[in-house]
Computed example of a mutant assay.
Amino acid sequence: MKVDLFDFVLPPDRIALHPAQPRDTARMLVVDAAGLHDRTVRDLPASLRPGDCLVFNDTRVIPAQLSGTRGAARIAATLHKREGARRWRAFVRGAKRLRNGDAIDFGAGVSAISTARGEDGSWALDFAGDEPVELLLERAGTMPLPPYIAQKRGISARDADDYQTMFANEPGAVAAPTAALHFTPELMAALADAGIAHETLTLHVGAGTFLPVKAEDTADHRMHAEWGRIDGATADRLNAVRAGGGRVIAVGTTSLRLLESATGADGTIRPFEGDTAIFITPGYRFRAVDGLMTNFHLPRSTLMMLVSALMGIDRIKAAYAHAIAQEYRFYSYGDASLLIP
């Protein structure tokens, strides 16, 4: 399938540089069988049914952006996947200056050795010392905001809170599961009062989520693997929701991708722990989810392909055209959509 099918033109001023305050006041475009409906996130309890279940990703974003030197050369690294207790795979700006075995000084007493360059150009970085790498990153790292935000306004101290969901519990992500940024304790209480349950799983989102699709055809694109986990008790409860007539609504494409990775051809969600590189494009048959709450995605991105697979390319193009015309805010800090096939 041609990647051009998933392209659209977005005015640059529609890219949100800060989240809505309070978070649940963001706008929400509901796309369902009845058409398009302009609402806000606070309308979510009335937009779902009693017995439905929202599934959140409880990953926690780590300060995975590092800046350092190798001799006189400047090196910038974005960690994207843990490969061991002290080893992280990283995308490196200035990678042509690196050789196997080079020492990189990131300041604040944090250093790493570059090893094992990957086919995708990434490097494995082995961090020196005995302290947990998470503590080293707290000292030397910054929040890994998406480039379309960081390049426009830089990173502020406030992003340490703004770019973390209320569910963040399991450290390891280098990008936030941004659909869940819209949720507040007040909204969760309103959902519970409306008879809508929730569950959590863990998928450590990698920096590959920001990478553009460079191939001309989806068949030639290679997804980066991300680590995720669904425990047996959670899988059992989600299966019971569907058996009782409720719907499983993924909050974010990361939750959806892990749910689909854990679900067999019979529609049963099973315990899962490991890597997934699932790539969902039109023609995919969904097995685990009945809907998706998500933000508005980049043109030509794998996430644009995913929502097109869920709703159909024509419906998504119509929804995005409506969102642009109605001045919705796009991308990680932007507004939401609720997609019910």
Rank of each mutant, 00 (worst) to 15 (best):
R23G: 01
A34W: 01
G71K: 02
D7Y: 01
V133S: 08
A160F: 09
T178V: 06
R300T: 02
L17P: 04
Q326F: 05
L48T: 10
V30R: 15
K2P: 14
A309H: 07
I196N: 01
H198W: 15
L125D: 03
R74G: 12
L258H: 04
P177G: 11
V61M: 01
A176R: 08
A157Q: 13
V174P: 02
L135T: 14
V307P: 01
H204L: 10
L303A: 09
L191D: 12
V241C: 06
I230L: 13
P12C: 10
D13N: 14
T178P: 00
L338I: 12
I269F: 01
A197L: 12
H297C: 06
D220R: 14
P177Q: 13
E273L: 06
D275Y: 14
R158Q: 15
I149Q: 06
P11L: 04
Q65V: 06
A265M: 09
G94P: 02
R153T: 06
A108K: 15
H182W: 02
A108T: 10
T25M: 12
Y148L: 03
A95G: 04
L66P: 00
M188Q: 12
D335A: 08
G172L: 12
G312H: 07
S122W: 03
L203T: 02
F127N: 01
A128N: 12
A128L: 13
V30I: 15
G291I: 12
D32H: 10
S332R: 09
D231P: 04
D120R: 13
L137S: 01
D161Q: 15
I104F: 09
L79N: 00
G101M: 13
G35V: 03
R315V: 06
E134K: 09
A150I: 05
R89E: 07
S156N: 06
A157T: 12
A321Q: 14
R242Q: 15
V9H: 07
D236G: 11
A72S: 15
L338C: 11
L338P: 06
G154S: 05
G246I: 08
L338Y: 10
P299W: 00
D161H: 12
K317G: 07
D193Y: 04
G84F: 04
I155P: 00
R300W: 00
A197I: 08
D105L: 04
I230P: 01
L238Q: 03
P50R: 09
A112E: 07
P12S: 14
P171S: 09
L36R: 11
G94D: 02
I340N: 03
D290Q: 14
P22I: 10
T59A: 14
M223P: 06
P50Q: 10
G283V: 08
F330V: 10
A90T: 09
M223T: 07
L211F: 10
G246T: 11
V41K: 03
E327N: 15
E138G: 02
A325F: 06
V174D: 03
Q21R: 14
Q151L: 13
H204K: 07
T40I: 10
A64I: 06
A179F: 07
Y328M: 05
M304S: 02
V9W: 01
T115M: 14
A76L: 13
A90E: 08
N295W: 11
I75Y: 02
L181I: 01
W227G: 00
T276K: 10
A76W: 03
H37I: 07
R270W: 04
D24G: 04
V92K: 05
G228P: 11
R237P: 06
P341M: 05
G154F: 03
I75E: 02
L29D: 00
V213F: 08
G208N: 00
K96T: 14
H198T: 13
E327T: 11
